[in-house]
Design a protein around this nucleic acid. Sequence first.
DNA 1: ATAACTGCAAATGATTTGCACAAGG
DNA 2: CCTTGTGCAAATCATTTGCAGTTAT
Lengths: 145, 145
Amino acid sequence: MHSLEHIAGELRKRKQKLTPQRRLIIEILSSDRSHPTADDVYSRVVAVMPEVSRTTVYNTLRELVAMGEIREVQGLSESGVRYDTYGAEHQHFFCVQCGVLEDIPCSSSSACCGQEGMEGFTVLRTETTMYGYCPQCGEANARER
Amino acid sequence: MHSLEHIAGELRKRKQKLTPQRRLIIEILSSDRSHPTADDVYSRVVAVMPEVSRTTVYNTLRELVAMGEIREVQGLSESGVRYDTYGAEHQHFFCVQCGVLEDIPCSSSSACCGQEGMEGFTVLRTETTMYGYCPQCGEANARER
DNA sequence: ATAACTGCAAATGATTTGCACAAGG
DNA sequence: CCTTGTGCAAATCATTTGCAGTTAT
C-alpha cells in the first residue's frame, strides 16, 4: 500500500476525511506484512486508541479495499478474511501448519502470469496461492522424525 | 469426483452409510460442473426429495470434502463457499461479470505448477485463479460499445 | 455549516451444533 | 441391534446496517 501521505491525498480527492481512527489504522497496516484479519487489526488499534469500534475498523478496511490500497485474501483463516498490504504484483505461499502467509514476488517463481491456451477469455489478473510447509515448519517436521 | 459406486465403496470402508439422501446429493454433484454453493445443491436436492434438510446437505458436502471427492472454492460468491467436483488437477477462471467459474485443465495454460525460486518451502499444491471476462461476457461487452 | 464519520446495538446470513428420532448394515 | 444419519431448532460468528450524536474540512 502507499504511504499515509499518499492515501491522505486520495481521501481528500474523494471528499473523505482523515480521522484519527483512519490515520491509526493506515499506520498500523502499512507496517504489517502478516496479512492480519479485521480482528487482528482491531486488536492493534484498540491497544493505542481503546475507544475505537470494530465498525470503524471494518469500514476503513472496506474503504481501503475500494481504493485499491489493500486486498482481501479469502479462505485461509477460519476466523475471517485476511488483508494483504503488499503493493506490487505477487503470489502467496500459505503454510498449512503454522498459517503464515508469505508474499512471493512474481520474479521469484515461475508459477506466475502465464495465460496461453486462454483464447476467448479476457484475463484481468491471476491469483496464485501455493500451499505447503514454510521453511521453519519444514525443518521442525524433519527434526521430529 | 469419482462415480457413485466408487464413493459408495469408500463410505463402506469408513463405516458410513449410503443413505438415499447421500446417494441423491452425490448423483447431483457428479453431473454438476457449475461449482454450486451449498444452497444451490440444497435446491436441486429438495426438488427431488422435498423433506431433505440443509443440515444433511451441509454434512454430506463436508464429508465429501474430507474424502477428497470435492473441493471448496472460497471467496468467489457473496453467498458462501462453492464446491468443485472436477477430479483432475486444474486451475480456475472466474468471470467477474456473470460469476461463471470455469475449470481450466493445467495443460491448457502455462500459469500452472512452476515453483522455481521457492527454496526452503515445501509446496504441496498450487491453486491458481484467473479473473476476467468469459468469452460470452467479453463479446457482449464488445457489442455494447 | 454540513457532509462524512463514529460507535453502539441490533440484524444478517452462511454454517454448525445439540438432540431426539429414524434407519442402514 | 446399535451405530451412524437425519431434521429440526437454536447457536455461532464474521460482517453489515440503522441511527443518533460527533467531527473534519
